[in-house]
Nucleic acid binder design. Sequence first.
DNA 1: TATGAATGAGCGTTCATTCAT
DNA 2: AATGAATGAACGCTCATTCAT
Lengths: 178, 178, 178, 178
Amino acid sequence: MRADAQRNRARVLEAAEVVLARDGLSASMRDIADLAGVGVGTIYRQFPTKEALYQAIVVDRKLRLIDRAGELAGAGDPGEALFTFFAAVVEDATAKKVFTDALTSAGIDAKESAPDVRPAIETLLTRAQEAGAVRRDVGMPELLALLAAACLAAQHHRWDPDLRTKTLAVMFDGLSGR
Amino acid sequence: MRADAQRNRARVLEAAEVVLARDGLSASMRDIADLAGVGVGTIYRQFPTKEALYQAIVVDRKLRLIDRAGELAGAGDPGEALFTFFAAVVEDATAKKVFTDALTSAGIDAKESAPDVRPAIETLLTRAQEAGAVRRDVGMPELLALLAAACLAAQHHRWDPDLRTKTLAVMFDGLSGR
Amino acid sequence: MRADAQRNRARVLEAAEVVLARDGLSASMRDIADLAGVGVGTIYRQFPTKEALYQAIVVDRKLRLIDRAGELAGAGDPGEALFTFFAAVVEDATAKKVFTDALTSAGIDAKESAPDVRPAIETLLTRAQEAGAVRRDVGMPELLALLAAACLAAQHHRWDPDLRTKTLAVMFDGLSGR
Amino acid sequence: MRADAQRNRARVLEAAEVVLARDGLSASMRDIADLAGVGVGTIYRQFPTKEALYQAIVVDRKLRLIDRAGELAGAGDPGEALFTFFAAVVEDATAKKVFTDALTSAGIDAKESAPDVRPAIETLLTRAQEAGAVRRDVGMPELLALLAAACLAAQHHRWDPDLRTKTLAVMFDGLSGR
DNA sequence: TATGAATGAGCGTTCATTCAT
DNA sequence: AATGAATGAACGCTCATTCAT
């Protein structure tokens, strides 16, 4: 891929994330192109439809989530690792709408696109349970449901840090059983 | 207001709820009018914009929420009352998109319209805390945040009853502190 | 149908005919709307797609062709009737592109829309043959082929009256066998 | 012109003919470039606009028509020569859209580009008339009009060989006066 | 010189909103 | 008061053409 094409692709993704975060799924391609400083045609060269652009962002986000989970799994206290990951994802979601959708589409929507974040999270959960930091009767479905719920709400209502801390504290209490 | 005008208003609200639940915010006024059996102009006589119609539904929902909270507050075990209310709202949210938005706009969005559901919920919370069923350090903001989060996620991902039960169980555990 | 709707429908059809004659199938809906003095939406209220608008014009043209053939069949010399009809259609085609397509789609394209002009023309042909004005070994397929060919060429190259007369004279000579 | 440039020019013309025959005037430059195995820019180096490319093909076709007419004029029965040429052109037109346009633009459109096919055809006509095979009162304009008409219709409606034979028989009858 | 990425006007179509009927 | 026809800005997307590589 040519250098300018690569630069433009990155610019488009960045702009799309911003505009999608601001306007939701009804964001217009024109707006994205304008913010990226390219013509609309340039977007369509890389992404055949609006949907494809959207999916590309989601995939990108999923990859970053998997990375982050991997890092945390490799080091430190297992209980803290899970909760830190959880809180970090929610924090990101506040700013980046698409992050939520990445997470969101991960756990539930079977039809969704490539990388699966669930194994990475499952590792965190299992280790936390083995360390006694999380109740053994908590399964992946409800963990993901809680995570998605927190992300959706954090983003939808722009949780401030204080509210985020307090709300997650309740969830973590429920997960740990103490 | 004339009798037929009132009847039309009710019909429009009913149709709008159905169509919005089905198609989300991108529902078209035409579809709503068709289902209501009126012309689009008739909707505009009652509601100056699509947004206003939407807000009217939200207000309607809020009133029903307040009613339900009042009923539960008047009878039975205070802890159970709060959790029953919470679960009932989430259950409704699964089917009725707008319900969530009602709740959602209630707790957070300052710009939002008239009836305030918070006092009704606060009564449930206070009584539950006085009965020792909920930790005293849980405040209204995080309770509403949890409720909105559960509603958003339940609706977004169509929680089945089993997932709803398990996920709420974790939340309730966290709220009760045991 | 409301009076204004009817007036607009007529205006749109008229404008569409002009613009289609000028620009061919690549005519734009915007241009048609502008010439008709209406908004594009008004066209779409009556005709769900560009294709449908086009078909409506074709159908309209076919009906007029059938009428004209009927009139000629009812009166006068059978040979003259066929040749007069033929010449009249070609004359119209010079000005109205769509006329040709009406005729054109009639004889050949089986998939095409409703009214069939062939029976009307067949009557003219049969009567002309019975009167000895046209060779008996001429069939409908080649008659229609000649008619369509003359229309296409007349329109494509803007035959002037003199050229039209001379060219049709050759065709009529061939048809009559003398 | 460099050897590779010449090769590219030939490739583009060949591809353009195929694609234009298939898709008509709405064929895209991209499709032509892809089939030719070159970049779109390469087409534009040789042909400043799509229209120019199109004209180049037409010119190419005209040259071939002139060649063919020349061959037939040099040998055999003059009447047969004209009719054979006529039929051959129509047969080609069925398959090659552009052929028609070549012929078409030849006789009529004054603005059109270089080589003139008319002298070549006129030779055929004159010789046929001198041999008594064609009426003396038939002029070039109507002969070309008939030829263009047959080509347009043959192509537009995909005349099968049987229909072609029968329709041309009528035309030839008209031309020969017997 | 050849490439194909970038451009942006323009396309067909939709739909919230207005207003003549 | 009710209707639904009319409006036109805005949408996702295409493609002839230009120009950086």
